[in-house]
Design a protein around this nucleic acid. Sequence first.
DNA 1: GTTTTAATGGTAATAAGTACACTAATTGGA
DNA 2: TCCAATTAGTGTACTTATTACCATTAAAAC
Lengths: 229, 229
Amino acid sequence: MKAEPYKNYDTVLIAVDSIIFGFDGVKLKALLIKRNFEPETNKWSLMGGFVRADESVDDAATRVLTQLTGLSDIYMEQLACFGDINRDSAGRVIAIAYFALIKIDDHSDEVLQQFNARWFDLNKIPKMIFDHKKMLQVAREHLQVKAASQPIGFELLPKKFTLSQLQNLYEAIYETSFDKRNFTRKIKSLGVLQKLNEKEKETSRKGSFYYLFDKQQYKKLEKDIKKFI
Amino acid sequence: MKAEPYKNYDTVLIAVDSIIFGFDGVKLKALLIKRNFEPETNKWSLMGGFVRADESVDDAATRVLTQLTGLSDIYMEQLACFGDINRDSAGRVIAIAYFALIKIDDHSDEVLQQFNARWFDLNKIPKMIFDHKKMLQVAREHLQVKAASQPIGFELLPKKFTLSQLQNLYEAIYETSFDKRNFTRKIKSLGVLQKLNEKEKETSRKGSFYYLFDKQQYKKLEKDIKKFI
DNA sequence: GTTTTAATGGTAATAAGTACACTAATTGGA
DNA sequence: TCCAATTAGTGTACTTATTACCATTAAAAC
């Protein structure tokens, strides 16, 4: 039903599509689904859905993501609007893209299978429908920009992580390598890591200490931290 | 007309609303209109309109801005989507906000009058409809972030400008003051200003040289310039 | 005790940022 | 014509980040 003063204007469908990044300890990944519905059945795409009349756009994005991943507290922010006229092969649809970061872990496997979803290495992305590859590209750039100034990297790591894992993550984000000492020095100097008395023993004999990201401490220091990395 | 596979989904109206900044040499301003149409007649709002079925969202924003300002080459970029369910008092409308920078100059006065538009000092913004003040706030923050890394400030200045004008602009954007020598040195060191042999004589007896922004030179150096200011 | 990876300190060189004060050019008016 | 007033224009020393490079010890598993 259209509002009175606006009755002569066109309405369109609004999609919310999420670019979901994850990190497996070595590589950055994006979560895609193989569509088992129309249109573009059997092709790869981002996770998405339509905004309903009775929900906000942000709520729609959250709803869709929760439905498709089974996860409820996902880091998520609006990325951009994609509004080209023929971007969707099946009709006029304007998409609002969302940028999401999740902690990959094992027990979500069933959900992934249920929805035909798969994690893809960022440089092995398959052909995708519509302008989804462009969305992914924009999201990747956003990740680099954002991760430089804010501590969003921790959203991709388990609660407890080692310094090596943290460094691997940033190296994956920026597709480069950092000097270990400089990296450690810098990240520690921010004063937002909390060292645990517990070691990760899988990847080395010596074992490396786990750390936590101290969010409260970060909040306190936030105004002094212009650059995260 | 809805596309077949999507026929069970809701459609909505899409507005494009532009936050337009200008600089009068001293202060940053935003361009608002006093609405002479429904809804919310006689209240202040951003310039906006609706996306038509036969145009892209970006095109709609450009069209609306051109109609309302009479200007055709305006710096413009997408800012954000505002999609709360009751944001518009007259119905469900999702807004895509655009960020625009224009060079204030005299000969657009007629257009301003025609559309009931007025430039407002940023700390004297009147009450605005819907969530338009929030949009303005987001745009202001975006201006600060963006101006730090890219030379968008020149979009707000006349083609020929003095170093003082340039400094005043950045001081207005960041609501602070800079040391004149440091500012000049930094901006000159970027190598994108072109000094003219012509002086502005209105504001001082000595007169100060005009400069141009050398866009081509900037393009060449772009990759080396991480931070503009 | 051999092997493996973690953890750590230092330093030198470079680049970026900050603080600070005087002279130059010009005009208008005495 | 000269003085006063006004804004433009400029250099240097100091501090703080950033980067690059190098090497050794520590802990634990086998």
